[in-house]
């Protein structure tokens, strides 16, 4: 995943921040609100990795976390990497993730 992915993702409606978590488990690039949430996305990635696609009982593809604030944190697992997102609650996550998956497929 590269800077183009981050730039394009930031232009999707409702997206406030984007972070790329590399295979090392560290955030390699971040933009917007995701910048201050790097540690959270790294923790989420570490917790999710043992359950990632075809690796375990869950075969996890995506985590969506709603909090008590107007924000949704999502983590899309992409092979050994992941894309972390901060978005607004008004945007249906199913739509948002469809947009992101299309974006990832293009890149």
């Amino acid at each position: 995943m590269n800077d183009t992915v981050i730039d394009e993702a930031m232009r999707i409606g409702g997206v406030r921040g984007v972070a790329v978590v590399g295979a090392s488990g560290k955030v390699s690039a971040a933009s917007g609100a995701a910048g201050e949430l790097s540690h959270f996305f790294e923790m989420l990635f570490a917790a999710a990795l043992p359950h990632a696609r075809d690796a375990a009982a869950l075969s996890l593809r995506r985590i969506v976390v709603r909090t008590d604030r107007d924000e949704v944190f999502s983590l899309l697992m992409e092979r050994a990497e992941a894309l972390g997102l901060v978005s607004e609650k008004w945007r249906p996550v199913t739509e948002l993730c469809a947009d992101l998956e299309a974006l990832l497929a293009r890149n």
Binding site: L44, A47, R62, V64
Partner: peptide, 21 residues
Amino acid sequence: AIAEGLELLGRELDEVLLDLG
């Protein structure tokens, strides 16, 4: 693990969705 991570951020968990395909 997610709830613990949110607590460190001073947030409370409203809902978690795990997409398994």
